[in-house]
Nucleic acid binder design. Structure first.
Length: 301
DNA sequence: GTACAGGCAGTAT
DNA sequence: ATACTGCCTGTA
């Protein structure tokens, strides 16, 4: 079964119909949500070269990818994860335990690394509607058109596609100063300086070090890519929302204060502490904290 | 007008 | 190490 909240970006999916034994529902995390749209009874998303469709049919979900790819759903929604074990781990913390019950289906979604990286680079110092606009423009300008259900979508361009574009063309997508960073990231990927497969096999520390070499990639963006795309489930990205959530609920963080910006020192302290505290699935805990903060704040996606 | 939005890099202490 | 600043662009 698939459920849609009133706030249209939040998409909940029943996993039982997707052959997951443990828990019922999955929700799309913030990173990938940028390019999802609802048309009629279906949600359509861009996943690299593919268009994804989720449809509610008689109480269960129908998953489709265009072009079709076997076990695409399995990969995207992390159906191979041992959800029970993960929830047990992060539920050692009583606050997160409450959130796991409150949002029983929230999960991580596995994203295409380059799409994830470019998306979070667009997200710096701006808001969701702007991010959506930038990415929408990028897909229309550099992606390939793909027709699904009579509607025209655009795939997410490869690093190569982006690299072929000039910085001015990128700016034309409304990226502003981010154009330079995105170009630099595209070059890093195309040149092989950043090798996502290698980084997936590498340790958290090693992979993060490599990502930070690239112009435009800092702590936050690196941790997002590590968590959402490079299998580092202990990565714990810190943004101002998470920082507030941590400060509001965890006494052991109170000695450190912060204003509306997070300094590198604070980032290091918060992220490291959270990884130690929540354990090897800290990133899952992060998603619960993040999601709850956004719900509380009543932000519209 | 001006403050602000889910960072980052460069420069100066 | 830490603090300060500029940066595109749109909205309130």
């Amino acid at each position: 079964m698939i459920k849609f909240n009133k706030d249209r970006r939040n998409c909940l999916v029943d996993l039982q119909s997707l052959h997951q034994s443990f828990d019922p529902i999955v929700s799309i995390n913030s990173g990938q949500v940028f390019l999802w749209e609802k048309h009629c009874d279906s949600w359509y998303g861009i996943h690299g070269e593919r268009i994804i469709r989720l449809t509610m049919v008689d109480g269960h979900i129908e998953f489709a990818s265009f072009p079709e790819e076997r076990s695409c759903d399995h990969k995207m929604f992390r159906l191979g994860d041992d959800a029970r074990s993960i929830f047990e781990q992060i539920s050692r913390d009583s606050y997160v335990r409450g959130l796991v019950k409150m949002y029983p289906g929230l999960r991580l979604m596995r994203q295409e690394p380059h799409q994830c990286l470019f998306s979070f680079m667009c997200a710096s110092n701006t808001n969701i509607p702007m991010i959506r606009r930038m990415l929408y423009n990028i897909t229309r300008k550099f992606g390939k058109p793909a027709k699904v259900d009579g509607m025209e979508f655009f795939t997410f361009p490869s690093a190569d596609d982006i690299n072929r574009a000039g910085i001015d063309e990128l700016r034309g997508c409304g990226l502003g100063y981010r154009a330079r960073s995105i170009k630099a990231a595209a070059i890093a990927i195309v040149s092989g300086q950043i090798d996502f497969n290698a980084l997936t096999r590498a340790s958290y520390a090693e992979a993060k070090k490599e990502l930070l070499q690239v112009y435009g990639i800092g702590n936050k963006i690196a941790d997002c890519v590590l968590l959402f795309s490079l299998e580092k489930l202990d990565a714990f990205p810190i943004d101002i929302w998470i920082a507030r959530a941590l400060a509001g609920h965890y006494k052991w963080l109170h000695e450190k204060k912060f204003g509306d910006k997070i300094t590198p020192g604070q980032y290091e302290y918060l992220s490291y502490s959270a990884r130690e505290y929540f354990g090897k699935y800290a990133g899952y805990a992060q998603q619960y904290l993040y999601y709850h903060m956004r719900q509380e704040a009543g932000k519209k996606w």
